[in-house]
């Protein structure tokens, strides 16, 4: 917990082994049951963005959704978040149907989506405003989370005074402040430079180990998905559907240069190119 944010490249996810076994039990964290999403276009006919998607995601799993633009991965994430409703089908989180946002889904967006008029600390506190805890406890929770993402010293900074990497750390802390069961992340590192990106990937893995969340992670980057995930779901476009479901088995802690990644990388690339 005392790790410094800037130099945690080697932060070892110690719980990796039991993580994999814990992912086995029957009750899935998220069930996506025959979800279809159609948007009306200008002509009045529909465009099918998601076509009959079914997927079960285990407790504490780290699942990435990978696909080309237009494959509906962001729409799927929004449906999980309760920000959009499916045209047909259902989504259940911990067995309860999703009726809207705020049912234990924390969301991290591609743009940090921090409230520019709130400081880092206030933004994180915003995350726990609906939790049934006292004001003082909220303050403590928020400070702990800022420390968790290595930004205890930036509490009073406003978003525009922070770098892109710092903004996204605060956004992660804010999502965690909700104390969510699942964390939905929509290309959260897409706008960051390569070095910051690697840093935040390691950071995220460390947090995932400590906080034990189910993570659904949308990304364009195959290598990012490989480093992070237990499982990668490939989506194909027009209409959005599941093309392939790949288990990523190299043990954690992972090394980016692990030769097993190369084989998986090729497999995924072929899966996307079909």
């Amino acid at each position: 917990m005392r790790s410094s944010a800037q130099s945690n490249m080697g932060a070892a996810p110690r719980l990796a082994a039991d993580q994999a076994t814990a992912a086995q039990p029957a009750a899935p964290a998220i069930e996506i049951d025959r979800v279809t999403k159609t948007f009306a276009d200008r002509a009045g006919s529909g465009i099918t963005v998601l076509d009959d998607i079914s997927l079960a995601i285990a407790q504490n799993a780290f699942v990435s959704l990978v696909g080309r633009s237009g494959c509906g991965k962001t729409t799927l994430l929004n449906i999980l978040a309760g920000l959009e409703a499916p045209t047909s089908g259902a989504v259940r989180i911990a067995g309860r149907p999703v009726k809207g946002p705020g049912q234990g889904q924390g969301v991290v967006f591609q743009q940090h989506a921090l409230f520019p008029w709130l400081t880092a600390l206030e933004n994180v506190k915003f995350g726990c405003r609906k939790r049934p805890i006292s004001r003082a406890e909220k303050e403590d929770v928020a400070r702990d989370l800022l420390a968790l993402v290595g930004l205890q010293d930036a509490a009073a900074k406003y978003p525009r005074e922070m770098s892109g990497g710092m903004q996204q750390r605060v956004a992660i802390a804010r999502a965690l402040a909700l104390d969510p069961d699942i964390l939905l992340m929509d290309e959260p590192f897409g706008a960051l430079d390569e070095l910051t990106r690697i840093e935040l990937q390691d950071e995220l893995l460390r947090i995932w180990q400590v906080r034990r969340k189910t993570v659904v992670f949308v990304t364009h980057s195959i290598s990012e998905a490989l480093v992070l995930s237990d499982r990668i779901v490939l989506l194909a476009p027009h209409p959005g559907r599941i093309a392939r479901d790949v288990t990523v088995d190299p043990p954690r802690p992972r090394v980016r240069s692990d030769p097993r990644f190369a084989t998986l990388y090729d497999e995924i690339w072929r899966g996307l190119s079909q």
Binding site: G82, P101, G102, F109, A113, G127, K130, L178
Partner: peptide
């Protein structure tokens, strides 16, 4: 920015 509205909605607002 619509993303701010969405973000706030995810916190139950």
């Amino acid at each position: 920015d619509p993303v701010l509205i969405r973000a706030a909605q995810t916190f139950g607002l």
